[in-house]
Each structure stands twice: as C-alpha cells, then as structure tokens.
C-alpha cells in the first residue's frame, strides 16, 4: 500500500513543481489550471493510500515473503455476466445519437440508462463489485 501511495504522491509532487514553474514563467491560466488538476489527482488518492498504509499491516501482496495461503478468504464477488452494462451502453448510444441527430432520442436513452442503473445497483447489492 505504501509504494502505491508514494508513486501517486511522487507524480503529484512533480506536477506541483512543474505547475509552479509554468505559472511563474508563462502566466498562462488554462495550462496552469490543468496542471493543478494533475497535482490534485496525484496528491489526493496518493495521500489517502499513504495515510492508510501507515495505519494497517502490510497486505500479503505488499510483502515479498507472503505465501499463497495468506491470500485466503473471499476477495470479492466476480459475476460471470450481467445484462445491465449492455442496457446502459445502449442507452448511452441513444444519448450519443440524440446529441448528433435529434433530441427525440433522449427519452428512450435516459429511460434505458435509468433502468440499467437501477438494475446494476440491485444486482451488485446482492453480491459484490460494481
């Protein structure tokens, strides 16, 4: 967990140096804003991982001497299949058509996406990952 955090914090720190340098050298706002976004993308999750790494024992995948047995237990529920991604994708496809060809595609698009979002939520409540 620690190395994961350090990698992200490192990226954030590098981008911080770049964005400060870029701002003082160019004074150009849009690039600076995007660079600051990249800083946050590194620091926020990286800091969170690092914070947790300090407070927990290393996981088996963090330890070079871990054995296969130590990974025992359920690590998650992985479905074999689900219809809802397809339904949501169909809704998104209609949404794309609505953007390009006409707003009348919008009601079926939103309908399908709503149904799929409901479906996938109830399905994942019954077991496991999104």
């Amino acid at each position: 967990m620690k190395i994961e955090g350090i990698v992200l914090i490192g990226i954030g720190a590098f981008m911080a140096v770049v964005s400060v340098g870029y701002w003082f050298w160019s004074g150009e706002p849009s690039g600076t804003a995007m660079l600051i976004g990249a800083v946050l993308l590194g620091l926020l999750p990286g800091g969170y991982y690092y914070w947790w790494a300090k407070r927990m024992k290393p996981r088996p995948e963090d330890r070079p001497d871990a054995t296969t047995r130590e990974g025992a237990g359920v690590i998650g529920s992985f479905p074999h299949g689900s219809i809802w991604p397809l339904v949501f994708g169909a809704g998104a496809f209609l949404f794309g058509l609505a953007l390009a060809f006409g707003w009348w595609f919008l009601p079926p698009a939103l309908g399908l996406m709503l149904v799929a979002a409901t479906g996938v939520t109830t399905q994942s409540r019954r077991g496991g990952a999104i």
Binding site: P79, F88, A90, A92, G96, V120, Q123, A129
Partner: peptide
C-alpha cells in the same frame, strides 16, 4: 467487471 463491460459497450457505441 460490470464497469469493464460498460467500457466496451460505450466504446462500441
């Protein structure tokens, strides 16, 4: 896994 499938359908669409 479901998000993964959604990625593919968005890409295909």
């Amino acid at each position: 896994p479901r998000l993964n499938a959604l990625s593919y359908w968005l890409y295909l669409g």
